[in-house]
Design a protein around this nucleic acid. Structure first.
Lengths: 238, 238
DNA sequence: ACAAAAGTGTTATGCATACACCCATGC
DNA sequence: GCATGGGTGTATGCATAACACTTTTGT
């Protein structure tokens, strides 16, 4: 059975990598992601998600992390499995059937500034993807954005975009960029503080043109699950 | 690369199948699932989730559905991808590395009564699994139960356990069985009716030993997504 | 009549939203 | 002083929960 499989299937791992950068026109913070221009068939010349075939000795998450590192030189601060895509007809012009296990990742805003893009890699705002992408990657990107937007509302993943210390206004701007809508500063403050997901460092920012804000750090999680270093919600052994 | 993969990996699809049956001791409705006793190494003699290697011409969901049909003769009324498990060390004594894409499914209570279990298949209450299961299937079952419990609170999947027409008390008992706690009948009624996920058939049940309840059917979904026949929430093409 | 479950009404509580207003700093 | 964003206080509406109460059937 394994032999039959082997000749006609490839198992690949890809990653949708999110970062926050100002929009070139409006200057507003928005979601960006890196794409890789394909240099071979099928879909030669189209843009695609970073990824590649799964190596035999690699865990799935490790392969997803490698996709980030190899395309951008960055280390993801949050990594989580999105979905496995494996319809028989999803790679129409490919020699083999491709099953893709897709992850999504967040990178820190300050680290993103030092991104070293590999050959044929470019970043795009999620609303301005140079489509159609290769394979079913348009669908995957849309799904990943939906998941990120949903998850940010009930989980403290937004912290993963920020450095170790941040003001609540910075955190709010992250939420606003992800959700693409303005949030009330005072209510946002109360909600975040009541969650207990951040703690006051006692320090304040300096050099602002106005009242200096308190700086916070993200608090150690008190989930009933043991969390992995990426703070994802994968099923874990107790 | 594909050749290297081929010799050492197998891609399998398994399904966690949930049904509702009375508990043998208490008589209370609880979650059950079918397990398959392994007749070959590795984990010979242990119980495992229904499933098998992915056929080349099969979509992932079709393979998951086949796992249900071949083990129990049943047709799932809800089918949804759970997670892809692929750690290098998850199949320690197997000749090859196994990557499993796992689905979870719900079967209707009335159809379950006609289940025809295959050889070496038996059902167990989810809280009384004859563990340890093969591979990492204990972990998978626990994760699937968590997902079901979470999803039932914000999605009308519970309907999938019930036949075309049902009373709100029957629906409530489904929720109570899944969540494993009692729910206030009056508040439950209001919540369900305000969601608009059920509609009154105009008929009433007969032969009850008390006031006959109205019968409802599940209402057509008005999601912004096109839904598949299984009513899952997989990413779909617009 | 009584038991049992269906179904309605009322109230309390907590959370999200909206928004008025004060605070502290650089210029 | 004034502009700017940080930060606090308060009223309102909505969803949930708790529970008293009425209705309708079979026995």
């Amino acid at each position: 059975m394994a032999e039959t499989q082997a000749q006609h299937m490839v198992l690949a791992v890809s990653t949708v990598v999110f970062s926050l950068r100002p929009h070139p026109d409006t200057g507003e913070l928005t979601l960006w992601l890196p794409l890789v221009r394909r240099i071979r068939r099928p879909f030669k010349g189209h843009w695609a998600l970073p990824g590649g075939p799964l190596e035999n000795s690699q865990d799935l998450a490790a392969a997803a992390k490698d996709a980030v590192r190899l395309s951008t030189g960055l280390q993801p601060r949050h990594l989580e499995q999105l979905y496995a895509f494996g319809d028989v007809d999803r790679s129409p012009h490919a020699p083999e059937r491709v099953i893709s296990i897709v992850y999504w990742a967040l990178v820190r805003q300050d680290e993103d500034a030092q991104a070293v893009d590999a050959e044929n890699v470019d970043w795009y705002p999620v609303e301005e993807i140079p489509g159609p992408l290769a394979f079913d990657h348009d669908l995957i990107v849309r799904y990943a954005v939906d998941r990120l937007r949903a998850k940010v509302t009930y989980s403290p993943i937004a912290h993963a975009f920020l450095p170790g210390e941040f003001s609540l206004a910075e955190l709010r701007r992250v939420y606003e960029a992800v959700l693409n809508r303005a949030l009330d500063p005072s209510n946002f403050r109360r909600q975040i503080l009541s969650q207990g997901t951040v703690e006051d460092t006692g320090r304040r920012a300096t050099g602002t043109a106005h009242r200096p804000p308190r700086m916070y750090r993200s608090a150690p999680q008190s989930s009933r699950y043991a969390l992995t270093i990426e703070e994802n919600n994968d099923p874990v052994r107790a």
